[in-house]
């Protein structure tokens, strides 16, 4: 025992009480009670609903495909919407993301680009779809445009962040060789962000696939329309069948996206080393 340290202070408290956290917990409890009373969430309603739920489940099983044509058409349309929206969205979001990167671009370029991205990110794709249904009519086009907007919001933001994190040394090296602006982007910036780009592109495709099954609820094409109308007709066994198909499609998409990521990111890892 070498250092007998400083003498301990007189009052010895084993635990310091964190009044802030206590106050926060109490505030949370009060909020929960208040919010539940406002939303009229009560135990009675919940129990009543459980009885309904049993009936509901009973009517859902066994799943039954009432309109195979409409199911198949809806699913393919959702897939098409997801593919086209992702492609267009990525294409448009690349320049916007690039413009929004504060380490490469002047303020007059980043500000509007960031505003566009923020606007695109704010609204749920289904809400955006409503607006586009009004503009281009019912059908897949509205869905595609809605998901393009969502993709711009998501990819644009991540792409801008990815570019902002790159090492400027490499960019400067390419610049120093007297390369024009486009070459600086192609040789100094793109190789550094490619791996991450593949990551969020596959993620976006995945996310667009999920949302493409939903935009139909407001008439923007895809399986969502079939689902919603089955709901409104109380064809719960068909609803169940549609849901199972959607879940199957989404899971297949997720597995596929993972595989694609693996194919490309191995190279991405080598790039980093």
């Amino acid at each position: 025992m070498s250092s007998t340290a400083v003498q301990p202070p007189a009052p010895r408290v084993a635990f310091r009480t964190n009044w802030w956290s206590r106050a926060a917990w109490i505030a949370l409890a009060i909020y929960v009670v208040y919010a539940m009373s406002r939303l009229e969430i009560t135990w009675d309603r919940f129990v009543l609903g459980l009885g309904n739920g049993a009936k509901f489940l009973d009517r859902m099983f066994p799943p039954h495909i009432i309109q195979p044509d409409s199911l198949l058409k809806g699913l393919t349309e959702s897939l098409e919407i997801a593919f086209l929206a992702s492609a267009l969205g990525i294409l448009i979001s690349l320049p916007i993301g690039l413009f929004a990167a504060r380490n490469l671009m002047p303020v007059w370029a980043t500000w509007p680009a960031r505003a566009i991205i923020a606007l695109c990110r704010t609204f749920h794709p289904v809400i955006v779809a409503i607006v586009f249904v009004k503009a281009v009519g019912f059908g897949a086009m509205a869905g595609i445009l809605a998901l393009v907007v969502a993709s711009i919001g998501f990819i644009g933001k991540l792409f801008a962040e990815a570019i902002e994190e790159i090492s400027l040394k490499q960019v400067e090296a390419v610049r120093a060789s007297g390369a024009p602006f486009m070459s600086v982007i192609a040789f100094g910036v793109m190789p550094q962000v490619f791996g991450r780009f593949v990551g969020f592109a596959t993620y976006q495709l995945d996310s667009n696939l999920r949302n493409s099954t939903m935009v139909g609820i407001v008439g923007a094409g895809g399986i969502g329309g079939t689902l919603f109308s089955a709901f409104q007709r109380f064809d719960y066994d068909f609803v169940c069948a549609i849901l199972l198909c959607i879940i199957g499609m989404i899971m297949a998409g997720e597995i596929l996206a993972q595989w694609v990521r693996k194919v490309f990111l191995e190279r991405g890892k080598v790039d980093e080393e």
Binding site: S3, T4, A5, V6, P8, R12, V13, R16
Partner: peptide, 26 residues
Amino acid sequence: LRKFPEADIARAFELLDAVGLGSFAN
């Protein structure tokens, strides 16, 4: 709830002093 017996806490302080970290409890 950090409701340890008084004796445990007293011994903890004792041991902290013994290892020379009496003022580091918190």
